[in-house]
Design a binder for these strands. Structure first.
Length: 234
DNA sequence: GCGACAG
DNA sequence: ATCTTGTCGC
């Protein structure tokens, strides 16, 4: 009720309010962590969202994996109405309400969360992963598939090779090669986890694909949840 | 200068 | 994100 971290009741409805909310939360982000290391084991959750714009529906999924074995420990989904349009820089306001619902349905909170998108690599340094980390208090980082406005030197050709991800002159993340000879992913700190630990977890989660297992499983699950909701007729 | 811009 | 077939490869 006096929680400074945005109760659902105050979710912004306009772009101006959303940007103001980002400016308010920005100084609260912990960029250094260190957060859990891979050696600490524990659990890591992946979250993702799918949309049906025709029916105004959004489905979110949270999939929890064991860090050491990559086995699925638990999963949850949530379906609701879209709460915000897609606006570059304001993605969190579109995705997070459903994601928070899905996370709330887990029996046990994960030790770490991986987002499909950016953390502090963001115009106001408050991308999806930073925002979700603040709202949950759980260490969180982002793995994005495209660099778009950010610049970077191409990483070496091998898995594990990395270069700085730059926003102008500012270092905001890493371009990280997760598979030999495959296009890199873009890792950025979200909240309460260091960039080094985020990159180590990303490599741990990519034993055979470019994208983390967490992201792949959450993506597939939220699509199934959306299809099921449509089938049930909403 | 204008538009594009994570998903 | 989503619209969308087949196809090459591990």
């Amino acid at each position: 009720m006096t929680n400074p971290l945005t109760p659902a009741a105050s979710w912004p409805r306009t772009e101006a309010d959303a940007e103001a909310e980002q400016q308010r939360l920005r100084p609260l982000v912990d960029r250094d962590g260190p957060g859990p290391s891979v050696a600490d084991g524990g659990t890591v959750a992946g979250v993702d969202v799918a949309y049906d714009d025709q029916r105004d529906l959004v489905a979110a999924a949270a999939v929890v994996l064991d860090v050491a074995t990559l086995r699925t420990v638990e999963q949850a989904t949530a379906v609701s109405r879209v709460a915000f349009p897609y606006v570059p820089g304001l993605l969190a306001f579109r995705e997070l309400p459903a994601v928070l619902d899905a996370l709330a349905r887990l029996r046990t909170a994960p030790d770490l969360i991986v987002c499909d998108g950016y953390g502090i690599a963001h115009p106001r340094r408050l991308g999806l992963a930073s925002h979700l980390g603040l709202l949950t208090g759980i260490p969180c980082f982002g793995v994005a598939k495209t660099a778009f406005t950010f610049t970077h030197q191409p990483p070496g050709p091998h898995r594990g090779d990395r270069t700085p991800l730059l926003d102008g002159g500012e270092d905001v993340g890493r371009a990280l090669r997760t598979r030999d000879g495959v296009k890199p992913v873009y890792v950025s700190t979200g909240h309460a986890v260091s960039l080094d630990h985020a990159c180590a977890h990303t490599l741990n989660l990519t034993p055979r694909h470019r994208l983390p297992e967490t992201t792949r499983e959450a993506d597939s699950l939220c699509r199934r949840a959306l299809a099921a909701a449509v089938r049930a007729g909403q």
